[in-house]
Design a protein around this nucleic acid. Structure first.
Length: 317
DNA sequence: GGTTCAAGCGCG
DNA sequence: AAAGCGCGCTTGAACC
């Protein structure tokens, strides 16, 4: 793996990775998107598909606008090309930690629910529980490790995977996981119950009852069965998040049709809605959108929405 | 000219 | 032996 070699300080692997990265940005975005501008509208138009992703997410293609770069500075320059119509500004509204909130709801874990109710930085709170100390005293490394644990839980990751991700020994990663489950016993119960229920019923479901069937959950092939088990853990969280943002989109659309004809819902990126709103109306619009998104479901923890406004998709974040 | 596959990488 | 969920696009190789 080039990443491992690069992490050890070797220059050539890093050079290759850097080349691949800029090459990807150039071929997929910088050189391609301008050729896809529709002559009649002056915009790029994606297609959203409602029956592709097994979890109930939308997918986007031709072009895919759900994978526009954002993680690197070079990538973010591409986001600046996404601008609103004249007289409008872009408004980007993201659910904050929605899948972990859903995990808190589904598991009923008191510690996790309490952390979200208190509006804590969830990764810092997790780090404080796992490593000891107060959330405010958590080190950057501890928070990074806790974040990896939190994401790993959503994906059904093993201690081996966590060790690999964090570059630590397997035993140490297992200690982290053990301590996590000591502190958040409801989460372990939820994981066990989810696997067990999936084996009995052959499917898992979201908070709103949409099912994903898992025909390989009882396979004698370990690899296939374990894959199905990870899917069983992940799908209720990813799928419930998908259900929630779809409900929010319907509420937003109803409101736009009734009361905000100058506003347009222009993109959805799994936990984010992007709108163009008339310049000058952004503060009022932001609170409207926040309300629709936060009220799209009544969970045992609050849904929080982060909203930014800007003259392009980069500055709106 | 086309299709299919795997590898690799962009995003949540 | 494998080992972290869900997607779509580009590239290059193999093939028709």
């Amino acid at each position: 793996m080039l990443e491992e070699l690069a992490a050890q300080g070797h220059e050539l692997p890093q050079l290759i990775l850097d080349y691949r990265s800029v090459s990807k940005l150039r071929s997929t975005y910088t050189e391609k998107l301008p050729t896809l501008i529709h002559p009649a509208t002056g915009r790029v138009h994606t297609s959203y598909h409602q029956a592709v992703a097994a979890t109930g997410r939308l997918s986007s293609s031709d072009p895919n606008l759900q994978n526009i770069p954002v993680r690197s500075p070079e990538g973010r320059r591409i986001r600046r090309a996404f601008i609103p119509a004249d007289g409008h500004v872009l408004l980007a509204a993201d659910y904050s930690q929605v899948e972990l909130r859903i995990m808190a709801h589904l598991s009923g874990d008191e510690g996790l629910k309490k952390a979200f109710a208190a509006g804590e930085d969830i990764h810092a709170a997790t780090a404080a529980e796992v490593f000891g100390g107060r959330p405010a005293e958590v080190t950057a490394d501890q928070r990074r490790a806790a974040k990896a644990i939190n994401f790993g839980l959503i994906y059904g990751m093993s201690a081996w995977g966590l060790a690999r991700q964090l570059g630590i020994e397997r035993g140490e990663a297992q200690d982290y996981v053990d301590r996590y489950f000591e502190r958040y016993p409801g989460v372990r119960e939820f994981m066990d119950n989810t696997r067990s229920s999936a084996r009995d019923k052959g499917y898992v479901e979201t908070v709103f009852g949409r099912r994903l069937y898992l025909p390989e959950i009882n396979s004698r092939n370990n690899q296939r069965r374990q894959y199905a088990e990870r899917t069983a853990i992940n799908a209720p969280m990813q799928g419930t998040a998908a259900d929630i943002i779809k409900r929010a989109m319907i509420a937003v659309d109803d409101w736009i049709r009734r009361d905000a004809p100058e506003t347009a819902l222009v993109m959805q990126v799994h936990d984010e809605l992007v709108l163009e709103v008339p310049a000058g109306s952004e503060e009022k619009m932001a609170e409207k959108i926040r309300g629709f998104m936060a009220d799209a479901a009544e969970l045992d923890v609050p849904l929080e929405v982060e909203i930014g406004v800007g003259e392009n998709w980069e500055t709106a974040h």
